[in-house]
């Protein structure tokens, strides 16, 4: 296969970037997209040019590290697929392929196709956990959980935190990511004590990071490599509204010293 790549090259966050084109004529259909990028990089290295920086790690679709927008779609044209699990057979011989980093003001480009997604970690820090110490805990079967609830919670927890939702959203919103974590914990009995505090804090953090607002395009759901449903955004909205308008506020987060 022959392909022509147009790749975003940017030296560092504060430098200006631009698209550059590369021709590859020894691409095989069974190569993964990242293996094709490896081939490009080896070629560039041997030619004494600087290889394209891109994030990747597990290469089996679960670590969430890979992060390219390929021909205008986060993780490329195939649904529920990460870039590392995308294969060159999904492209035509002679294809022109545009590769760009995830675009968001909250995800500054570090180099070429690598972006800084630490905003996601900070959203989790704001409340994406159930407070715990390590040590003896009650037996899990003492709190039965309906299998349906567990399943839906796991659907939400399947989020790999790659940021494709932000990259795909015409508004650059992180609602799908944030709502998935809020729903995962908010649906489980263990997550109830901090449920409303969590949703408030995480949404505040999400907004503080400068992500856009959700306008129900459902673009995130379509481009999410794990197919996380936007129903979780609805859930987050309901919980947020309840936390803001209904739930008592005074007690939350303000325990008295005893």
């Amino acid at each position: 296969m022959k392909i022509r790549l147009h790749v975003w090259r940017q030296e560092s966050t504060d430098k200006k970037g631009k698209m550059e084109s590369y021709d590859l004529d020894n691409v095989l259909p069974d190569m993964s997209f990242l293996e094709m990028m490896d081939v490009l990089n080896e070629k560039l290295t041997v030619e004494g040019k600087s290889p394209v920086a891109f994030d990747h790690d597990c290469r089996e679709g679960v670590c969430g590290m890979c992060s390219m927008v390929i021909n205008g779609q986060a993780h490329g044209p195939k649904a529920t697929t990460t870039t590392c699990q995308l294969y060159m057979r999904h492209f035509k011989d002679g294809a022109e392929i545009y590769v760009e980093p995830f675009r968001s003001g909250a995800f500054p480009v570090l180099q070429d196709l690598m972006v800084d997604r630490s905003a996601f970690d900070r959203i989790i820090q704001a409340g994406g956990y159930i407070s715990n110490h390590s040590g003896p805990k009650p037996d899990p079967n003492s709190i039965p959980i309906e299998p349906g609830v567990q399943e839906t919670s796991l659907d939400a927890a399947s989020c790999i935190g790659c940021g494709a939702c932000v990259a795909a959203c015409p508004n650059g919103s992180a609602s799908l990511f944030t709502s998935a974590k809020i729903s995962h914990l908010g649906m489980l009995p263990q997550g109830q004590p901090e449920r409303y505090e969590r949703v408030g804090a995480m949404v505040d953090q999400m907004e503080g990071e400068g992500f856009g607002s959700c306008r129900n395009y459902a673009e995130c759901e379509a481009q999410c490599p794990k197919g996380i449903s936007i129903a979780f955004i609805g859930r987050m909205n309901a919980d947020y509204l309840k936390a803001t308008l209904v739930e008592p506020v005074d007690g939350r987060g303000k325990m008295h010293a005893q």
């Binding site: 159930i130 805990k137 037996d139 899990p140 299998p147 399943e151 995962h184 263990q190």
Partner: peptide, 22 residues
């Protein structure tokens, strides 16, 4: 055994049976 207890307390959604048990 303590690991399972710890993880469930953190909200790890392990598979459950119809009765809600692990």
């Amino acid at each position: 055994t303590s690991i399972i207890d710890q993880c469930v307390a953190q909200g790890v959604p392990f598979a459950r049976e119809y009765g809600g048990k692990l």
